[in-house]
Amino acid sequence: MQKNMRLIISLIVILVLIPLTLYAGITIFADRKYYFISIVIIFLACVPFFLSFERRKPQPREIVVIAVMSAISVAGRALFIVTPGFKPVAAITAITGFSLGAEAGFLTGAISALVSNMFFGQGPWTPFQMFMWGMIGFIAGLLGKTGIMHKKIPLILFGLFAGVFFSFGMDIWGTVSMYGVFNWKAYTLALTSAVPFMIIYAVSNVIFLLLLERPIREKLERIKNKYGILQ
């Protein structure tokens, strides 16, 4: 009963609520409410992930490992106070995704964002951050299945991609949708203001991924073997 309810809810979200919001955004509120609409849609997009986790009745060890990885990516920021944008969150999320799969990846990213903002203050950026980091973890989880994500070149490419992807969601879409002006000037302005951050994100992701991928993978493997979790 409970299970079916949740399935129905996630179907409603994907098939009804998101299109409805889009439709409402285009028709009723035609007055350039893209920012608001995007926040609502992004929020709704997270719901199915959360529901499927809930429906699966996760084991204590899965819950704890996800909580630990999120807490590490938040606490790890303390080491990088002096370097804005240079944060390990995306990389740690991605590595969790590689090792533990798409769902764990998404949740680690999304929870990292939520927890991080509980310490540094929530804002309209919270849903964006949750979704962007979550998707980085999710995509990493899908790519992890290919079994090539411990090699250097795929890691570098993924790090660059994650940096650009995150910056696009947070900075470019953030600015453009806020003003609701869609012309080249708006794009260029947003892009030029975002590029420095994009570069920092991408570079930091690549560094973190190259240096942390092997150690974290080995540590997660050790825990898996020693205590038999997540199998």
């Binding site: 959360f50 986790f53 809930e54 819950i63 630990v68 938040v74 929870i111 927890v115």
Partner: peptide, 11 residues
């Protein structure tokens, strides 16, 4: 979402 909220609390 009980399981997620617990994850959040632990984190």
């Amino acid at each position: 979402s009980p399981a997620l909220s617990l994850t959040l609390s632990i984190s």
